[in-house]
């Protein structure tokens, strides 16, 4: 490559790297008169973990499929890694990773065979064994995919999604059916990928998962975004009142206050036994449910 071409490539690459990972403006998808997506704007920054929440049928899946380039949009501007997914070629595809959720394919191939096969499609793939180890399936390397349990099958799906070293990874309800440890191991894996600079778009129904992983989230209901923010601040959660409960002289007492600090000081001064004290703020799940409920 000549010096001129290589500096042009460098310039292009650094410009691309400055852009947001995903920019969506005015996205609409209409099916025969009905708006599955009715005007969505959203921005996902590079290297962040972004979670999309919302009831089934609210337009979440449609939006993600449009971002993946698997569905045509009716209107709106979409830029994913700087390109329009509806028109992007295989070079763009190589920068994206999709972790499928419910596929039954390649049942007769071994884990290693399948991972290596898919790796072959990508110009900068990881080594198959490295990825298999990353998802914790090394001991199943030569087992046919047919023989794996549901959870192990999912790990293969993750392996296939990341083997191409994508800059952007789409995860759709990735831990459904996982037991609690497997979930936590999976979360660690995602955090490792994010730490490496991978941008991650995660749809999930588990609010604790969203809370554990997401840097930012958005709630989609009835084809629109009804709330956006961080897990701590979504829907005004941080400003919501705290509910303080304790037992005083054998009776259970509860008070709702914006800031429990003074109440606690008062209780301490009164000599109340604080081992029964609980302070709860609305959980992310509570906040989410009230956001969804408000749209009905």
């Amino acid at each position: 490559m000549t010096a001129a071409r290589s500096s042009l490539t460098w310039w292009k690459q650094s410009t691309i790297r400055c852009m947001e990972a995903i920019e969506v403006t005015g996205l609409r998808k209409t099916y025969g008169g009905r708006d599955a997506v009715a005007g969505i704007d959203l921005v996902v920054a590079r290297g962040e973990i972004f979670s999309l929440l919302g009831p089934n049928g609210a337009g979440k899946t449609t939006t993600v499929e449009i971002l993946e380039g698997h569905r045509r949009r009716t209107a709106g501007d979409v830029r994913v890694l700087g390109e329009d997914p509806g028109r992007a070629g295989s070079a763009w595809r190589a920068r994206i990773g999709i972790v499928l959720q419910d596929a039954d394919d390649a049942a007769d191939l071994t884990v290693h065979e399948m991972v290596r096969h898919i790796a072959g499609f990508y110009p900068e793939a990881r080594k198959a064994d490295e990825v298999i180890e990353l998802v914790g399936l090394s001991e199943k390397r030569n087992s046919k995919i047919r023989t794996l349990s549901g959870g192990q099958r999912r790990r293969v799906d993750v392996a296939l999604g990341i083997v191409g070293r994508p800059e952007l990874l789409f995860l759709d309800e990735p831990t459904t059916g996982f037991d609690p440890e497997a979930r936590r191991q999976f979360w660690d894996l995602i955090r490792t990928l994010a730490a490496d600079g991978t941008t991650i778009v995660l749809t999930t129904h588990y609010l604790d998962e969203a809370e554990a992983l997401a840097d930012r989230l958005a709630v989609v209901a009835e084809g629109r975004i009804v709330a956006e923010g961080t897990p701590a601040t979504l829907g005004g959660r941080a400003a919501a009142e705290a509910r303080v409960s304790w037992t005083e002289n054998g009776t259970a007492r509860t008070e709702q206050v914006p800031d429990p600090t003074d109440l606690i000081r008062r209780l301490l001064a009164d000599g109340v036994d604080l081992t029964t004290l609980t302070i709860t703020r609305p959980t992310l799940e509570d906040t989410y449910l009230s956001l969804i409920g408000a749209t009905r």
């Binding site: 595809r93 994206i96 419910d102 596929a103 394919d105 049942a107 898919i118 191409g164």
Partner: peptide, 11 residues
Amino acid sequence: DGTLKRLRGTP
């Protein structure tokens, strides 16, 4: 069985 779905997501 999802073979095409998976392949479609690759280059």
